[in-house]
Amino acid sequence: MIPIRCFTCGKVISEVWDVYKERIKHEDPRKVLDDLGITRYCCRRMLLTHEELIDDVAPYG
C-alpha cells in the first residue's frame, strides 16, 4: 500500500497513486508527476520508488 503522505513534507500523495500507476505505462513519469502537481523531489520519490508488494504478501496472510 502506498504511504498516505510524503515522509518528508507531509503532502498527501497517495491520492494520485491510481492515476499515476496507469499513466506511467505509456507516459514519461516526469511529465505525469508534473501534471499531477507533485512538484517537490521529496514527494516525487514517494511515487517513483514505490513498489506495490501487498499482492506478493497476500498468499501468506
Binding site: 500500500m1 502506498i2 497517495s14 491520492e15 494520485v16 497513486w17 491510481d18 501487498i54 499482492d55 497476500a58
Partner: peptide, 9 residues
C-alpha cells in the same frame, strides 16, 4: 476522497 486506505483481497 481518493486516498486508498486498504486493499481487500
Amino acid at each position: 476522497g481518493n486516498v486508498p486506505i486498504v486493499k481487500l483481497v
